[in-house]
Structures are given as C-alpha cells and as structure tokens.
Write a protein that binds this DNA or RNA. Structure first.
Lengths: 188, 188
DNA sequence: TGTGACATGTAATATGTTACATGATTGA
DNA sequence: TCAATCATGTAACATATTACATGTCACA
C-alpha cells in the first residue's frame, strides 16, 4: 500500500526522509541515501532500489533536488543536492500542523495481533508473549550495543532518535509483560 | 507503499486485521468490518472502501472466507464468514516466527522528523516540541475519555490493546519532553 | 580468473488511496 | 421533499516490493 497519506501539498514520509537524509549528506548519490536506510536499525525503512531511484527522479522533476553527473564512482551515476524549493519543502514537512497519522498512536503489528489473540489456544497465547518478549529483548540488546559502540556520539538529533527507539521498545516490553500476566490470570 | 511486506505464504497486516475482525463479527458485511477500522482510534487503519471490498474478494478467491447473499440491508450485499483455511491462516499469522517488521521498533513519524530537526531554526524547533506534545496530550485525553465511557469493558484483549496504545502515547510524550530539554540545553 | 560486494538502474506486479457512481434509509 | 448518512461497489492512479540485468572493484 501507499503507506503514507499525503497531506495537501505535502511530502510523504519517504520523501521527507529522503530529502532530510540528502540534506545531511549532500552532495551524494542515491545509493548513499539507500545505505542510510539499509543501515538503519528500524525494519520499516527498506531502502529498496526500486523505491529510491524512481523517487529521486520524481523529486528532481518537481524541482526539489538537482543532480550533476558523477564520474568518481566505478559506473556513471549522479550526485544530488537540495534546491531552495527542496529546503522549503523539508521545513513545511517538519512543521505543524501535521496530519493525524503523524502525532496519533503509531501502528504496532504486535498490538494488532493482540486484538486477535482469542483465536489462539491458551498455550499458544503464552508462547506468543514469551517469544514476543524475547524478540524485543534481543532488539534492546542490539540497540544498547550500538550505543556502547558510540554510534551517534556528537550527533544530538540522531542520539535522540536512538533514545526514542529504545524508549518505545522498553514501553512495549513492559506492556507485553503486563498483558501476559493479565491473560494468564483470565485462564483461572 | 505496500506498507506490509508479506512473509512467505503469510498474510499482510491488513489481511490479518480483516480476517481477525471478521472472526469476531461473522457473519457480517464488508461494511461492518470497515466500520471497525473507521471507528478505531488509530489513524493507521483508513478503512477505505477501495481497500476492503477488493481485499475481501481476493480472500474469497483464495478460499479463506466464504460469502452468501444478504437481503436484510437496503441494497444487495454479501455476508461473509471464515472458512477453516481462513482460521488456520489467522493462526499462522498470529504465531511466531514473525518477520522483523512485527517485533522491531515500530515506525514513528515524529521520530523520523526529529532526525531532520536540524533543518529548523531554534524557535521553530521549540514550536515543534510544543505542538507535538500538545497533540499527544489531546490524544491521551481522548483515550482516557474512551476508557471512562467503558469501551472494551469485559473485552480483555481489546482492553489490553487500548492500554498498549495509551502506554505508547505516554512513552512518546516523555521522550519528546526529554528531547525538548536536551535540545534547549544545546542552544546555550 | 572467478567470486562476492558495491552500485545503478528498470520492469512486472501488487495493493492502497482518492474520487466517483449509485441506491436505500432517516429525519428535519 | 431535501439533505445527510449508511452502504456497496468500481476505476484511475500512485507508489512500494520483488526480481532482474548490468557493470565495477577488491582480492584470493
């Protein structure tokens, strides 16, 4: 699905993320931007070539970015930079007012599944919580390892983003553990 | 975007949510299911007709649901029920192992924006945090009002989902407030 | 010289959004 | 009787995914 509904005249989430990434790395190639998504710990940003290359062509046609030939790499490619209109578009995307999907409760596939959990046997339900908590714990460990390795030191916004991701993982873990207890109590 | 990448042989998020909702309300019309999405406090589930009707036709072709004519409504329509294969598909979708997008850090449009916040002036940054926190506070009030009104009383899983959504809103609010303070400190 | 990682794309496909058309029901 | 809402769809469109084709580079 087109996941991101476009507010009037506004950028989609992916467009905003691409322009924002370009702002930090310009001038750069589409692959450089893909790399940022591919290396991101969030599984949400796939960074697939079929998304990024066509998107950057569209943004250039819209006048938000500009490119020049790039000879330095092995193959021919293009180096992109923001235009003034692109910079304005980023600001408009960043600033309020936002569409409801921006500030509202974020989607959570585990929460969606819990709403259907009645469909499982009691044993399978216990297993659901056990495995989900284990998976989140693994994610938390990965995030902490990243942090220890000094990723984002001296990059206050990236560090804040990492703290935010960690906070969400922990809050979700807490909620799952509580819910597991509540569901186990139902059983009696 | 197709928001949900399909694990091998598995349902997408929307398919899982539709089958799960059907399970709770069967036999019912596609509109009944749309209604659940439309009434959901999460802005993620749009419940647009153009998503639901074609999706249910597909699910029927795949043998996961079955329909019969419905004369009770004003216009002709169809009443759907799950097939045994549909019930199995729900269980498979619910149970581990899950693709990374299920247990990983959920996407958060506000977090994405924070990673680009350098693009704003200090004043605009302050405004960003002020407005974002205000929007979340409003959401929290709405959720509490729903709760007070007794929505989901006696429905343990729905109640757990509501608690989860509230927990995420609060964790996000806390993170935003902390980040606002950290950013304000940078300014000096 | 062959293999795997890096890099630049394109094509076919799937699916969600927006917008529209249509009809029934309800209440002012 | 008019408007709004409920309800059932369809069609055009946008855009992300998967899979593929291709070329370069490092290095064994």
């Amino acid at each position: 699905m087109p996941v991101s509904r476009r507010g009037t005249g506004r950028l989609t989430e992916l467009e905003g993320a691409v322009l924002g990434t370009l702002r930090q790395h310009a001038p750069c190639t589409p692959y450089r931007i893909r790399r940022v998504f591919l290396d991101s710990p969030s599984p949400y940003w796939s960074g697939s070539a079929g998304a990024i290359y066509p998107l950057m062509l569209r943004l250039e046609r819209q006048g938000l970015i500009r490119s020049r030939p790039d000879a330095t790499g092995g193959r021919d490619g293009r180096l992109y930079t923001l235009t003034p209109a692109g910079t304005r578009a980023i600001r408009e995307w960043l600033e309020p007012p936002w569409p409801p999907i921006v500030t509202g409760v974020p989607a959570d596939p585990l929460r969606t599944r819990v709403s259907v959990l009645e469909a499982l046997s009691p044993d399978a339900r216990s297993r659901f919580f056990r495995e989900a908590i284990a998976a989140i714990d693994q994610d938390i460990r990965d995030h902490l390892a990243d942090k220890k390795r000094g990723r984002h030191a001296n990059q206050p916004y990236e560090a804040a983003v990492a703290r935010g991701a960690l906070a969400m993982l922990r809050a979700r873990r807490r909620w799952l553990a509580e819910t597991a207890r509540a569901v186990a109590a139902l059983r009696r």
